[in-house]
Computed example of a mutant assay.
Amino acid sequence: MTQYLFSPPAVQSLPIRGTTQQFPINRIFCVGRNYHAHAVEMGKPVDKSVERPFYFTKSPQTLVQSGATVPYPPESQNYHFEMEMVVAIGKAGFRVKAEQAHALIYGYAAGLDMTRRDLQLVARDKGRPWDLGKDIEQGSVCSEVVPMEGQIIDSGAITLEVRGNTRQTSDVGKLIWSVREIIADLSLFYHLQPGDLIYTGTPEGVGPVVTGDKITGRVAGVADVALTIGAAE
């Protein structure tokens, strides 16, 4: 038996609706600027006719379950919410055709891609990686996984409220790159594996939160997600 110098990290997982089993997390992929209105508000419009999707990753250890209270993160003065539909991959796939992408889907969830916006924008403008702005401890929030094997969601309201005030409202039908297109394109770069999560992008209306704020979001027909911002450590 292998003897480790210290205990390795526990496997991150999410509850699965309707069962006592857990969905173990392998990797977290995020699609950048996948709603036109959000791309515009970030000052980086997208022309799908000449561009491909782009991605960044977040460590599985950043995952927290819906309903948690997390501290305001260090070294930031501009912490933002980003409401997203999340695809849970249940089967392996590499160089998958778009018309076969549904076969990899286990289910869906509602997620928050929390972002140190000030650090992200500094990195973006200097051509540096986004890690400090995106790969944040307790910065990947996710609901339970809802089994929907082989199903493609191509429409449905996506909304977010802070302290009961609506801040984001759109429809997943407005994704620039659809669920099929995302899975097919991402599988050209990676051997997708069971346990991978894909955060599909956020609509317009992103903005800052402060200590004490409660965030609630919903993907219609999928799930709700909630987060409370605690005091900085």
Rank of each mutant, 00 (worst) to 15 (best):
V146S: 01
I215E: 05
A37S: 13
R163H: 09
L112G: 01
I25M: 03
Q3G: 04
V64I: 15
D118E: 12
E82Q: 12
L197C: 07
S49W: 10
A68C: 13
K58Q: 15
G133H: 06
Y106D: 00
D125I: 03
E99L: 06
L112H: 05
R218K: 14
R117P: 03
G139P: 02
E99H: 09
T202S: 15
Q168H: 11
I25W: 00
P8I: 10
V70D: 05
P73V: 08
T57S: 14
I229E: 02
I183S: 03
I215V: 14
Q61T: 15
A37T: 10
A110R: 01
L132N: 14
T115N: 05
R33S: 09
I25A: 01
A231V: 10
A157V: 11
P8S: 11
G205T: 11
V11R: 09
E204A: 15
A10E: 13
R124Q: 14
Q100W: 04
E82R: 07
A123K: 03
K126M: 11
V209W: 02
I25Q: 01
A109C: 11
H38Q: 13
Y190P: 00
T202L: 07
Q193I: 03
L175M: 13
F23T: 00
S13A: 15
M1F: 10
D47A: 12
